[in-house]
Amino acid sequence: MRQSKKADALLRYTAAVCGGTSLIFIFLILGTTLVYGFPSIVVNGLKFLTSITWNPALSGSLITVHGFKTLSGAHYGGLVFITGTLVSSALAIIIGAPTAIGVAIFLSEFSPKSLSTIISILVELTAGIPSIIFGYWGLLVLVPFLLYNIEPSLSQKLWFLPFFHGQVYSSGLFASGIILALMIIPIIAAISRDAMRQVPLEQREGAKALGLTHWEVVKSIVLPNAKMAIAGSILLGLGRALGETMAVVLVSGSAINTLPHTAYAPINTIAAFMAQSMDSAFTDPSGMYVSALVELALILLLITTATNILARLLVREGFISSSEKVVRV
C-alpha cells in the first residue's frame, strides 16, 4: 500500500514536470528573442515601426550607438514587412472567411449526410497539407494563372476601384492572399461547422414549423447561435495567416523598401522575410542585422499571440454558451 502511494506520487511529479516543460519552452523562446532583439530595440527605436527603408549597410564600418555595436549607415525600418503581413492576412480573411462560412453552412445544413462526411474528410485533409506544398503549387499553377488570365482583365475592367488599376506582377499581394485564404478556409470551416451543428434541433424545427425557408432558419437561428465560435474561428485563421512562412515566401514577390500600391504589387511579410534573410544577416560583424530580424520576430510573436488568445476565448465562449442552451431546452 505504501509502495503504491509512492509510485502514485512519483507518477504525479513526473507528469507535472513533463507538463511543466511547456513553461520552460515558452521561457526560452521569449528569453532568447528578447535578449537577441534588445540591441535593435534600443538602437532603432520607434523608427523601426515607421520607416520603410531596410538597409543593413554591410560595407559600413563598426560604430557604437547607445552602447551597442552597429554598422555606420545601417538603417532598419520594418514597416514594409509589417504592412505586408497585415495586408496579405486581411486579404486572406476577406476572401477566405465568407467562403469558409459558406462551406460550413453547406456541410452542417444543406448537404446530405454522406456527402457531408466525404467533403469533411477532404476539408480536414486540406488543413494537413504542408505549407511549402501550397507555396510550390502557388508558384507553379496559381501565379501563372493569375498573371495571364485574371489580373489583366481585373486591371482593365475594375480600373475605377482603388488598388485595382496598375501594372500586373507575376507574384505579389493577390497571389499571397489567395494562397493564405486556401490555407485558412479549412480551419474556419471545420470549427464553424461544429459550432453550427451544436445549435439545438428544437429551435430549428420550431422555425421550420413557422414556415421559414431553409436559409431563413440558418440566418435567424443557426448563425446567431454560432456567431461567437465563428468569430473565434476567423481569428484563429487570421493567427495562422499572420505567422505563415513557407506558403507566402514563394509567391510574395519578396518586396523590399517599397509598399504595395496595387492589389498585384510584390509584398513581403515578416515571416517570409525572416526565412530569406538569416543567411545574409550573419555576414554583419556587428550583429545588428540579426538583432533587427529578431525584433521583427518579436513583433510577429506579439501580434499572433494576441490574436490567438482572443480567438481561443471566443471559440470556448461560443461552444460553452451553445452547449448550455442544449441543456436548457
Partner: peptide, 25 residues
C-alpha cells in the same frame, strides 16, 4: 490552468519564430 494557457500560446508561435529561437539558443 497555467500549462493549458502556455500550451495554447506555444501552439500559436509562428514556425519561423520557433526556428529563430532554436537557431539562437
Amino acid at each position: 490552468g497555467l500549462i493549458r494557457f502556455v500550451a495554447d500560446i506555444l501552439a500559436a508561435v509562428p514556425s519561423i519564430v520557433l526556428g529563430y529561437a532554436g537557431l539562437l539558443f
